[in-house]
Simulated assay, not measured.
Amino acid sequence: MDKYLAPSRYINFEDPRILSLARSLAKNCSNENDIVKKCFEYVRDEIKHSSDFKLNPITCKASDVLLHKTGYCYAKSHLLAALLRANDIPAGLCYQRLSVGDSGDAPYCLHGLNAVYLRDHGWYRIDARGNKNGVNAQFSLPREQLAFPIQSKNERDLPEIWAEPLDIIIKILEKYETYDQVLNNLPDIRLINSNL
């Protein structure tokens, strides 16, 4: 579990602002689940999704997401992991491969979310990308309620739980400067045993 509790370049919870927010969110919480819910709802509701709100700059590090109060799903997952790890709760990064147009058809892109390890439940996925019309992600144990369902054979819930962001995600977030540049170059991967 150590790697899911460690600070890193992108999940940089040693930043004083992140530590302060993490402590503030955990204050008055009676248990681990309450802390997770408060951190999740903060990132979901207080950090604006870059594309939904047409916001710049493009953020990647957790501290930059908090500073600018905006990020793509990937960056928001970095901040959520940082807040959870700062509260000594193991957190990782997960990805889905989804249709860009919500039709189930090509083109496809990766979508970033989190998994948190809960002592009484095990690994549980949460998606703080931000709710909007047609998107209603919640922390609703024991059932997962993610932002997007899998709708076609070429979409996937990727099973891995990563301690660090995928390189392809970092390259996109660090290469482009505006939300529309990222939107036009969303990262994707080829599926194993797929002819895509």
Rank of each mutant, 00 (worst) to 15 (best):
M1P: 13
M1C: 14
M1R: 14
Y4G: 09
Y4I: 03
Y4V: 07
A6R: 14
S8A: 07
R9Y: 12
Y10H: 09
Y10A: 01
I11M: 07
I11G: 06
N12K: 07
F13C: 07
P16A: 10
R17A: 13
R17W: 04
I18F: 04
L19T: 11
L21H: 00
L21A: 05
R23N: 13
S24I: 02
S24E: 14
S24C: 11
L25Y: 06
A26T: 06
K27I: 10
E32P: 10
N33Q: 15
N33P: 07
D34S: 15
V36Y: 06
V36C: 14
K37L: 12
C39P: 11
C39W: 02
Y42Q: 09
V43K: 01
D45A: 00
D45G: 01
E46F: 05
K48L: 13
S50T: 11
S51W: 03
S51V: 05
S51D: 15
F53H: 15
L55I: 13
P57V: 04
T59S: 05
S63H: 03
H68W: 07
K69P: 07
K69W: 03
T70I: 09
G71R: 00
Y72S: 03
Y72K: 01
C73D: 06
C73N: 01
Y74G: 05
K76I: 00
H78R: 02
H78I: 03
L79Q: 08
L79G: 10
L83K: 01
R85G: 09
I89C: 08
I89T: 12
P90C: 08
P90E: 10
A91Y: 00
G92H: 04
L93D: 02
L93T: 01
L93M: 07
C94T: 12
Y95F: 07
R97M: 07
L98Y: 03
S99V: 07
V100R: 04
V100H: 02
G101T: 10
G101N: 15
S103K: 11
S103Y: 07
D105A: 14
A106F: 08
A106E: 14
A106K: 14
P107R: 01
Y108K: 01
Y108G: 02
H111E: 01
N114D: 10
A115K: 02
L118D: 11
R119I: 13
D120G: 15
H121A: 12
G122W: 06
W123Y: 02
R125H: 03
I126Y: 02
G130V: 03
N133Y: 08
V135E: 05
V135W: 02
V135R: 00
V135N: 00
N136A: 12
L141T: 15
P142R: 02
E144Y: 00
Q145H: 12
L146N: 05
A147R: 02
A147P: 05
F148E: 06
F148Y: 15
P149V: 04
I150A: 06
I150Y: 00
K153T: 13
K153C: 13
E155V: 11
I161N: 12
I161M: 08
E164G: 05
P165G: 08
P165Q: 08
I168Q: 11
I168H: 04
I170N: 08
I170W: 01
K171E: 14
E174L: 10
Y176D: 12
E177S: 15
E177W: 04
T178A: 06
D180P: 04
L186N: 03
P187T: 04
D188R: 11
I189W: 08
R190F: 09
I192G: 11
S194A: 15
N195C: 10
N195P: 03
L196N: 13
